[in-house]
Design a protein around this nucleic acid. Structure first.
Length: 516
RNA sequence: GGCCCGUUCGUCUAGGGGUUAGGACGCGUCCCUUUCACGGACGAAACACGGGUUCGAUUCCCGUACGGGCUACCA
């Protein structure tokens, strides 16, 4: 593929949190921009003032930032084609709508909401396949095509509410060459006369999008497949505005689907499905409900990016783990798949594990230290790193270091009930009593030394070590399973272990089977 | 309903007119391990269906089925 620098944009609406499909769209745009040495632009499409959600824009930026996706131009960083918020570009759109009207490609429409509903009802009852405002129905509606010129002028002068609609040609084949899907052909008869300018003076998505992409010199429009049906309308707009020669290339991304089979993944699915669909935590405005994001669940941004990148794209090799730089190097729009992809959280977890385990213990310790701080526990960086090294293969999420290693900071006060009931024995108590006592001789102990000591004791008592191992783990950690016990003992140190043995013997005494 | 897009293991996918249809996640068995996990080995598992085209189709074409998207003065 040729590597002419592209200009691409990610153009979200600030109507709520960004969901993970949006993040992928942003990522693909970003990758293509960086790969070609072009620019990635963030444009905020806030033309619908009724759906504006405060904080959504900040969220979008923070989320992309977390993922390592940085814009070259946008609301925050500015740029030569600003402003980058459509509400602030409002005065720029009018002239293009006027131009379209003047050229006979658009017209004023005065129909009320009720009249539009009535028209659709009527058409539905008449079993018209697709009831819409189009080349056929517009002749029966109130617009500048049907009303006398003087009435139109009077209405406009009198301040009657109106919209400007695109005058879609009656019979024309519209074709667009999608980078992912190839040629897509649509007959203009199936298109409706989309509103271009709303009665509040704001452009609709369709007009604003085309105008801004033109003005911002966008070369590639990479967006979700839900936009494919309106792409022909956009092609028409480029043509009517005389911009056909600089029309961007289109790439409509396959949608991310729910894992259970049907429908695209939506913002509401997170809770129902038991995994995040948002990059970051989001507080719902109306309900105040807090929905966790990938970040809060302990996912690493590198893992999320990697997982998302491969949800619908691959470079044809068997490579699965890619850094952002490698993705940039390898990415091509041509290798984006055509079909919708189900969201597989298990694979995401696997990626996270890969990235988490690839970190050094010192890096991992940062997660543990953060959790310890929340618990009010202080420790040294060295000790935290030691713990991380020990428990790392049991971790998938950043929060797992604390979950898996908490007993290395806090002595157990409760013991796994099942193990206590089935494995705790007088033999175990005897071994532990001796072990605790012997430990007093050691200022510190290595894993090997602990192992030898334990063997000595069990051999001396004539007890098979396998019989009591589970019970010893229980006594020292309170748990049924965990990392290598001898290393746990080494890290904890003889004094602490001795103390825990004593406590366990006392506490678990009730579990001893009565000696007959 | 109409328009548009899609369809290779359960999932993400590679491949492509003649292949033992490859990899990864997940799953199962075994090994390692006196635990769990990690790791290792092995295994089960797919070309939606029907017609063409062809010496030969999973691959190309057409239908059907199924899935998805859109069908607002929302993006």
């Amino acid at each position: 593929m040729d590597n002419t620098p592209v200009r691409v944009r990610f153009a979200p609406s600030p109507t709520g949190s960004l969901h993970i499909g949006g993040v992928r769209t942003a990522l693909y745009n970003y990758l293509l921009a960086k790969k070609t040495g072009g620019q990635f632009i963030i444009r905020i499409e806030d033309t619908d003032q009724t759906r504006f959600v405060p904080g959504a824009e900040d969220y979008i930026y923070e989320a992309l930032d977390w993922c390592g996706i940085k814009a070259d131009e946008g609301v925050r960083q500015g740029g030569p084609y600003g402003p980058y918020r459509q509400s602030e570009r409002k005065p720029m759109y009018r002239q293009y709508a006027d131009q379209l009207v003047a050229d006979g490609h658009a017209y004023y429409a005065f129909d009320t909401k009720e009249e539009l509903d009535e028209m659709r009802d009527r058409l539905t009852k008449a079993r018209v396949a697709s009831p819409q405002y189009n080349s056929i129905t517009r002749v029966q509606m109130k617009n500048s095509l049907t009303l006398p010129a003087d009435e139109v002028a009077a209405r406009l002068a009198g301040g009657d509410p109106y919209v400007i609609r695109l005058k879609v040609p009656r019979k024309e084949e519209i074709r667009l060459n999608d980078l992912i899907r190839g040629w897509v052909m649509v007959h203009s008869a199936t298109l409706d006369d989309k509103v271009l300018m709303k009665s509040d003076g704001m452009p609709t998505y369709h007009l604003a999008n085309v105008v801004d992409d033109y003005l911002m010199k966008i070369t590639h429009v990479i967006r979700g497949e839900e936009w494919l049906p309106s792409a022909p309308t956009h092609v028409l707009l480029y043509k009517f505005l005389g911009w056909e020669d600089v029309m961007p290339k289109f790439a409509h991304l396959p949608l991310i689907l729910k894992p259970d089979g049907n429908g695209k993944l939506s913002k509401r699915d997170g809770d129902a499905l038991g995994f995040p669909v948002f990059p970051l935590e989001w507080t719902e405005q109306e309900t105040g409900k807090v929905v966790k994001g990938f970040r809060e669940e302990g996912f690493l941004p590198e893992a999320v990016v990697n997982f998302l990148a491969l949800l619908g794209w691959n470079n044809g090799t068997h490579q699965e783990v890619y850094s952002m730089d490698e993705l940039i190097q390898e990415f091509t729009a041509e290798r984006i798949g055509k079909s919708g992809t189900k969201f597989d959280i298990a694979k995401a977890r696997w990626f996270n594990q890969q990235y988490l385990h690839a970190k050094t213990s010192v890096q991992q310790a940062e997660y543990l230290l953060a959790d310890l701080a929340k618990e009010g526990i202080t420790t040294t960086n060295e000790y935290a790193a030691q713990v991380c090294a020990l428990v790392q293969e049991r971790t998938v999420f950043s929060g797992d270091f604390w979950k898996e290693g908490s007993f290395l900071f806090v002595a157990p006060t409760e013991f796994d009930a099942t193990v206590a009931a089935t494995k705790w024995s007088s033999d175990a108590a005897a071994v532990l009593t001796k072990f605790g006592a012997e430990l007093a001789e050691y200022p510190s102990i290595t894993a090997d030394e602990a192992k030898h000591l334990l063997h000595e004791i069990t051999d001396g008592l004539g007890i098979k070590i396998g019989k009591v191992m589970q019970a010893i783990r229980l006594a020292i950690t309170g748990r049924a399973a965990g990392p290598d016990l001898m290393q746990v003992i080494a890290i904890l140190g003889p004094a602490e272990v001795a103390q825990r043995c004593a406590y366990a013997i006392k506490t678990l005494a009730t579990h001893l089977k009565p000696v007959v």
